[in-house]
């Protein structure tokens, strides 16, 4: 009775996947809370939300949407490629996903810093003079895209960690649940953006 790690070694792919899905549900509802806040305030201040949304650049938003959709495809493909036992392609696809995520973040950085240099940030003097609806819109904009960006960073870290496992051959064609799970997480990030994009950039 000295093998104290024995219970931890028990492997259950299906169980790990259910666990990941449950975690994804909690993330969805985390954003769900913010979506409730958004929809209530949009309902109360339709005019102000309309005006404020025109401040955002649809082009940047569209580019970022395209980037995330493509990165979602590459990570999905990496799962197929590991099943085809193509380790090299898997790593390339995962690396591509991380690269696209980095581009997304750079875009986001320029977008945010542009807004901030125009004096639009929570608690700024310019914003305090604006209407209440606009204060709420930009408050929500920063909170929701900020929380989303945080999830991108976590997702990148997760994928990078799994990449290391692939390199070390610890993730292979018959044992890739963790790759699947990191993919699921990444799709979640995409899924949330699919709703954030029209709500902030399009509906003007």
């Amino acid at each position: 009775m000295s093998n104290y790690a024995h219970i931890d070694e028990h492997r259950d792919d299906e169980g790990a996947k259910i666990g990941m899905w449950l975690f994804i549900f909690t993330e969805l509802l985390l954003f769900g809370g913010l979506f409730i806040v958004y929809s209530v305030y949009r309902y109360i201040n339709p005019e102000a939300f309309h005006l404020a949304a025109e401040e955002l650049d649809t082009f940047t938003g569209t580019v970022n949407t395209v980037i995330l959709l493509v990165s979602s495809m590459t990570i999905a493909m990496s799962i197929s490629s590991i099943q085809y036992k193509n380790k090299k392609l898997t790593l390339i696809l995962m690396g591509l996903t991380i690269l696209l995520a980095a581009v997304f973040m750079v875009n986001k950085y320029f977008e945010w810093s542009g807004k901030i240099s125009h004096g639009i940030y929570p608690g700024s003097p310019t914003l305090m003079e604006a209407s209440q609806g606009e204060i709420l819109f930009f408050g929500l904009y920063y909170a929701m895209t900020g929380l989303h960006a945080l999830h991108i960073i976590i997702g990148v870290a997760f994928i990078a960690y799994v990449m290391r496992l692939v390199v070390k051959n610890e993730v292979q064609h018959d044992n890739f649940t963790i790759l699947e799970n990191s993919g699921l997480y990444w799709h979640l990030v995409d899924l949330i953006w699919i709703f954030l994009f029209p709500l902030f950039y399009l509906i003007t």
Binding site: S72, M73, A76, G183, L184, H187, D190, L191, I194, F195
Partner: peptide
Amino acid sequence: KSILVLLIFM
């Protein structure tokens, strides 16, 4: 779009 992502990608 989200249904597509859920069904195929996920």
